[in-house]
Structure formats: structure tokens, C-alpha cells
Design a protein around this nucleic acid. Structure first.
Length: 734
DNA sequence: AGCACGCCGACT
DNA sequence: GTCGGCGTGCTC
């Protein structure tokens, strides 16, 4: 065979996880067969002075580079590609759409273990099932009750149990394996009933939704399931999933929060006798690797995961479910800033499968897509079991005396509810004791020296803490400025409300749920169980109360301060507040115990409140959408935000100035360029932050500008002294 | 992002 | 005399 020059022979195009938006050329290897290097396989390559795990994205005959500068691949890590052609197409599309380096985008598709180059081997001992001996009716386990219980449980459900489910029964499992009654065995979708638990009887609305999505199985469609809290969205998901599984297809279920996975996982395991895996940041690298590989191999049929699970390969993709689609945590807020909701839809389109998205408070983006006929809407307007929607009451607190933020009528209402032996839920979106400490004599206030923000009093741990950079210091006893003044806590946080509630309602059990009380693993579950058992009378908390959990014995919900949300600078502030109010309100009540929601405000006649409370979320959304349309804001305009930050204010300003200069050469615009301006909080964690907002009513126009702009930004010399990032479809403009 | 090279201040 | 500061440049 003739020796050929490397530059004329086959060259591999490799995606390397570095922030450089290009592929790198490599020779297959010194002697290797180039046909082995398939698109989607991982390779170990020399990169500068180090080694990187890259992914084969393609090949070419020859290279534009001098052949001597092209290095050979060190090792082919996968004999079969880990990602399919469609998976790679999705990643390539996402890299282009978000203008993010391809190597980093491809890396996000892999769990950490595979990113590090570990072998892609699926452990057999992930699943266990009773053997023929274990199935025999006359198994005698004597007095080994734990083993007996475990075997009985395992026999109750086919076909196989995952290691995760059996984690709490290791000794009994070991013993059963040693006795030959249980063996490691991969589940086979054909070896047992797929649906175990009986489906609940669907009401007509649920049935219509199930049928609508069911009719679209096997083709691309987006369904928006708008269902009030407690309307049985999960049952609809499960019945559609059952149909998908019956076709021998897999399901990807995306949730906004890790907190919500355990509950749903439990319900799914009771219903479905198939391999179910979870994928979220609370799992170990190894668990995530195994979950990923199980879905890729088709061993597991359902994956429950957060944003990071979106790119998991599916052997037989059938359906994507995305719950709480309005939730902001589907948008990645650093690095590769993708929206898992939008990319999920792009993925479904590529795979030609349907997506079902659900929410009680759909995003305005999704409602606009429904109006334009791109998404199909199914509506579940009724709560299950004839539960009535909560009654809202706006409590005007102007001029009223407040006791730690609680007005007298509210205190009375809480007392009346407690006297009836019912639970009360109080919501305040501010944790800590008080948002600032102030000296009554000299006016000193507790400021963070790294951020344009106040230090928050955390009385429980005797500290002042910055919620933006994490800085903390001991709570001063004397004024650091004048040394003599009396220090006061200004404003309210959940800790302080808790203190007041303890005085006002002594003898009642109060549970506070916020990031501070639930940061410990398992703490949230513990509190939730306590509340469900009825061992709590007053539940007090922040944001996290609005998410997913239902408190059937709660009859009164109070939102202590909505005014800060009414006058947000962010154009999405109104949408977020309306969603919050509806979501918090949805936590309460059931059929025989209707809920009541009290909102304390100094703006009882505010249009948003009036519209939302008298006419409902959809009416609010209509109004908000027409305002957005008039202003050309999303979803009627498309945005991208260029951010820059550095330790001094000059560098980001100069960089953004130069970035604007680049655009003078770009004539075919149709894009508004707003800025550079400082971020609403200029200094954060010691960095000065500035930004440029781009807006256009045509997505292609914005994309054309970014195609021109982003490569040039990377080459600016001013870019070297700042950290910059581009956010396409930003959710927060700061 | 890493990781090198490269030229100027306070230390065993 | 050196250790180490972060500016600058490169990665197939």
C-alpha cells in the first residue's frame, strides 16, 4: 500500500471541550483503521500540553492545516458511537442557535464520568429479579423476615428492580442472591406487564388530553396541558406514558427541580413495571453514568430528570414530558445557556415524537405559541374530586398597624383557622431575619464590600450574609462606624416572621421552609412529612413553597408582601408574580376543605392584581401579551444579551464599546442595539458588570447579526481583559 | 478553559 | 541571587 501524506488522507473532525468554536483535525492514529472512528464516538486526543476527551463529529479528505501539525488520536474510547446521528444534529443545532462553542455543547450531553473518558460499560448488577427458585410458591426462608419481605415485594412486580430501589435492603438482597432466589438481570420490556397499578378513571377533560396526545404518538407535535393545581396533570402524563410504553418506546420526563423527582419517581414505580432511572445533580457521577447508559441501551424505559438530562440518548424515543414548563430553572444560567424547554421541542422535532408540557400557569411564550397554532392546548379547568378553587381576598394594609409584617385582620384570620385545628401557610419571598442592619444613631447600614447589595441579618447563626456573593461575617453587636449607636434590624425576612409567630401563636407548631432550613439533604422531605402528618400548624416559607408540593390540610394561605413584585424593573416581573400567586394559592385545600388566599398589599387596586384575581390567570396573560406585543417584547420580539464583567469598571465598558464598533460594518440589521449599559447591580462578587441588549422582531435577523458578531467578539483584544458571555433568549436581563 | 512562556518585585 | 505575580499566546 502506498504511503500517503496525512494532509491528503482521512482526517477526523473532533469536538474538544474548550471555549473555541471550531472542530480540531486529527489523524485516525498511526496504524488504526479509520473506518472504526465513527461519528459520535469518544476519542482521547493530545491537545496542547494535555490530553482531552473529544467526540468524533465527522471526517474529511485532507485538511487545510500543514500535515505535520496534525496529531494522531491517542485512543479510540468507544467502538460504537455513544451518540446517534440525531443526537449530534441536535447538539450542532444548539451550538449554532446559542452561539456557544461546539466542544462545550457536546460535552454537556455526557455525564461527568463519560466526559472524563471512563469506559461506557453498563453494570449488569443494576437490576435484580427473582429466579425460578425464588418464584416457587414453597420457598422457605424460616425466620429471615427481612428476606421474606423483600422477596415478597420483588415478586409483587415484574420484571426487575433497580439497584437504586433496593439500596436500603443490601444485606437481605445479598442473602437472597446467595441462596439463588434472586439474580442480577437486565429488565426486558417483553417479560412482564408494563403497567402495574390501575389507572385512575380519567374525567372527560383528562381523557380529551390523553386522546389528543395519544393521536400524535409517532409524530412531532407540541401539546400544552394547562391544568390548575390538583387537576390531575400527572395522571394524564401517566396514561400517555402507558400508551407510549405499550408501543415499545421510551419516555423522557423533565422536571424543574430535584426536589420533585422523589415523589414522582415513587408514583411512577407503583404504576410502571419497567426500568425507571433518574438523572439529577444529587446523584453520584457513577449513578448518572449508569442511568444515561441504561437509557441509551434501552434497558430503562423512563428517565426522570432535570435540565441536565435533556441530551440523554434514547434507543427508542417515543415521548418527552416537560412538567411545570413555565419554571425558570429550565434555562441554564451559566456557560451554555440553553433553555431545556426550547431544546426539548427541537429534539422532539428531530426525533419526530410528541412533547407534552404542563403547567397551571403557562409561560407567555407557550400561550403565544398556542395562539399561533404551533402548540395544541388541552385544558384541565377542574380540580379533582370536586375541590373548589381557592377564594382570594385582597387585604389593604395601607395605614394599618403591622406586627412584623402581619396585619391585624390577618392575625385574626390565622388564629381562627388554628382554632379550627387547620393548617395555615404563610409566604414571604425573603429569607433571613431582616434584609439590612442599620445604626439608629449614625445611619451606618450593613453593606457588602464586594457587591452593590446589603448584608442580610441571619439571627439564628448570628451572622450578616450577602445573598449575592456568599460573603458572611459575625453579626456586629456595636455599630462598626460610630461604636456607640444602637443597631436595628430593618425590614422583614422569614426568620423574623417565625419569631413573631412564635409569640403570637405560642403553643402552635411552626415549620419554616426556606433555603436556610432545608439545605441539609433530606431536611425538606422530613418537614414535608411532618406537615402531611399534621404535626405542624403554621408553615412559613419562601419560593420553594410554590413548587409542586400539595398541603391538603392547609385552608388559609397568606402572601405577606406582594408589593415588591408589582413594581419590578424586569418586564417579566408581572408574569413571575402572577405565576407565583397562582402557584402558592394552589398549595391549599381539597374537596371538603376549600382554601382561602389572603394577599396583603398597599396597592389593592393595582391592575395586575385586579385582573388576575377577578378574571384568572388566562385573563392576566391576555393583557400581559397585548402589552408585550405593543412593546415588541418577547414572545413578540427576540432578544440576546451580551454580558461582560471584570474587576474594574473600565474593561467591560471598553470591551462592549469595541463590540458596538464591530457592528458598524454590519449593515443589514433590523436589530435594535441597546447599550452598553451597566447591569442593574453593577458590582457583584467584586466584579463590575455591563451589558448590551439586542432585540428584533425577526428571529433570523437577530441570528444573522449574531453569526457576524460573535466570532469577531472572540477576536477583540479588549475581550482578553474581561469575562464575557452571550445569552440568547435571556430570562433575566441582569 | 488550561498551560506555557516571559519579564519585574520582596524574600530564604 | 531566586519564587512568583499575571499579561500574552496557543491549542488540530
Amino acid at each position: 500500500m502506498a504511503k500517503c501524506d496525512a494532509a491528503d488522507s482521512l482526517i477526523l473532525k473532533i469536538a474538544v471541550p474548550v471555549p473555541l468554536d471550531r472542530l480540531f483535525d486529527y489523524r485516525p492514529s498511526e496504524l488504526g483503521n479509520s473506518a472504526e472512528f465513527q461519528r459520535g464516538a469518544r476519542v482521547l486526543v493530545p491537545f496542547g500540553k494535555r490530553q482531552c476527551v473529544g467526540v468524533v463529529m465527522g471526517s474529511a479528505n485532507g485538511s487545510t492545516l500543514a500535515s505535520r501539525s496534525i496529531k494522531p488520536v491517542i485512543e479510540l474510547l468507544d467502538n460504537t458511537p455513544l451518540l446517534s446521528a440525531l443526537d449530534l444534529q441536535l447538539l450542532e443545532w444548539a451550538a449554532r442557535y446559542y452561539h456557544h462553542p461546539i466542544g462545550e455543547v457536546v460535552a454537556t450531553a455526557f455525564p461527568t464520568a463519560l466526559r472524563q473518558g471512563l469506559p461506557a460499560t453498563l453494570q449488569c448488577e443494576r437490576y435484580f429479579a427473582p429466579t425460578a427458585a425464588g418464584r416457587a410458591p414453597d420457598v422457605d426462608l424460616g425466620r429471615a423476615t427481612r428476606q421474606k419481605d423483600l422477596l415478597r415485594r420483588m415478586l409483587s412486580r415484574e420484571p426487575a428492580w433497580s439497584a437504586a430501589e433496593l439500596a436500603g435492603h443490601k444485606p437481605a438482597l445479598r442473602a437472597l442472591i446467595d441462596k439463588g432466589l434472586v439474580e442480577p438481570r437486565m429488565p426486558d420490556p417483553s417479560d412482564g406487564p408494563v403497567v402495574l397499578g390501575a389507572a385512575l378513571a380519567a374525567n372527560p377533560d383528562q381523557q380529551a388530553a390523553i386522546d389528543a396526545v395519544g393521536a400524535d404518538l409517532g409524530r412531532f407535535a407540541v401539546h400544552l396541558l394547562e391544568g390548575v393545581t390538583g387537576s390531575g396533570k400527572t395522571e394524564v402524563y401517566m396514561q400517555i406514558i402507558a400508551r407510549t410504553l405499550a408501543l415499545g418506546l421510551q419516555v423522557l420526563v423533565l422536571l424543574p427541580e430535584i426536589n420533585l423527582t422523589p415523589q414522582l419517581e415513587q408514583r411512577f414505580r407503583q404504576r410502571f413495571g419497567v426500568g425507571i432511572e433518574t438523572f439529577h445533580s444529587n446523584l453520584t457521577d457513577r449513578q448518572r453514568q449508569q442511568a444515561w447508559l441504561s437509557m441509551r441501551a434501552g434497558v430503562a424505559r423512563i428517565l426522570l430528570g432535570t435540565r441536565s438530562a435533556l441530551f440523554t440518548p434514547l434507543r427508542e424515543p417515543g415521548l418527552i414530558v416537560l412538567d411545570e414548563e413555565h419554571d425558570g430553572s429550565f434555562k441554564q444560567q451559566d456557560g451554555f445557556r440553553f433553555s431545556a424547554r426550547d431544546v426539548a421541542i427541537a429534539r422532539a422535532k428531530l426525533l419526530n415524537i410528541p412533547v407534552v408540557m404542563g403547567s397551571a400557569t403557562p409561560s407567555l411564550e407557550s400561550l403565544a405559541n398556542v395562539a399561533q397554532g404551533r402548540y395544541r392546548l388541552s385544558h384541565l379547568p377542574h380540580r379533582a374530586g370536586n375541590a373548589k378553587p381557592p377564594a382570594f381576598q385582597v387585604l389593604d394594609i395601607r395605614g394599618k398597624k403591622l406586627q412584623a409584617g402581619l396585619s391585624e385582620p390577618l392575625v385574626t384570620a390565622i388564629g381562627a383557622e388554628l382554632a379550627e385545628g387547620r393548617q395555615v401557610l404563610l409566604f414571604l419571598n425573603r429569607r433571613g431575619y431582616a434584609p439590612v442592619q442599620i445604626c439608629h444613631d449614625c445611619g451606618w447600614v450593613s453593606r457588602c464590600h464586594r457587591c452593590d447589595a446589603n448584608l442580610v441579618i441571619h439571627a439564628g447563626i448570628h451572622k450578616l450574609r450577602c445573598h449575592h456573593c456568599g460573603y458572611e461575617q459575625a453579626l456586629p453587636r456595636q455599630c462598626p462606624a460610630c461604636g456607640v449607636g444602637e443597631l436595628q434590624a430593618l425590614g422583614l425576612g422569614t426568620e423574623r416572621i417565625e419569631e413573631t409567630l412564635k409569640e403570637l401563636f405560642a403553643g402552635h407548631r411552626i415549620v419554616r421552609l426556606d433555603r436556610d432550613t432545608t439545605q441539609c439533604k433530606g431536611a425538606l422531605e422530613g418537614y414535608l412529612q411532618q406537615i402531611h402528618r399534621g404535626d405542624a400548624d403554621i408553615v412559613l416559607g419562601t419560593q420553594m413553597l410554590a413548587k409542586g408540593h400539595h398541603f391538603p390540610n392547609v385552608t388559609l394561605v397568606a402572601i405577606l408582601d406582594i408589593d415588591s413584585g408589582l413594581f419590578s424593573i424586569d418586564f417579566r416581573g408581572g408574569e413571575k408574580l402572577a405565576q407565583l400567586i397562582v402557584q402558592v394559592a394552589g398549595r391549599a385545600g381539597r374537596a371538603e376543605l376549600p382554601g382561602r388566599v389572603i394577599l396583603q398589599t398597599r396597592h389593592p387596586r393595582h391592575a395586575l392584581l385586579h385582573n388576575l384575581l377577578s378574571h384568572g390567570y388566562r385573563a392576566f396573560a391576555e393583557t400581559a401579551l397585548s402589552e408585550r406585543r405593543a412593546a415588541g417584547l418577547p414572545p413578540f420580539g427576540y432578544q440576546a444579551l451580551l454580558r461582560a464583567q471584570a474587576g474594574n469598571a473600565g474593561a467591560p465598558q471598553q470591551f462592549l464599546g469595541a463590540a458596538i464598533q464591530c457592528l458598524t460594518d454590519f449593515t443589514q440589521s433590523g436589530v435594535q442595539v441597546l447599550g452598553p449599559v451597566s447591569a442593574p447591580m453593577v458590582r457583584r462578587a467584586g466584579l463590575y458588570r455591563y451589558q448590551i441588549l439586542l432585540q428584533s422582531d425577526k428571529r433570523p435577523a437577530l441570528q444573522r447579526l449574531l453569526d457576524f458578531w460573535v466570532p469577531r467578539l472572540a477576536d477583540l483584544r479588549e475581550a482578553r481583559s474581561v469575562r464575557w458571555s452571550l445569552d440568547v433568549d435571556p430570562l433575566d436581563l441582569y
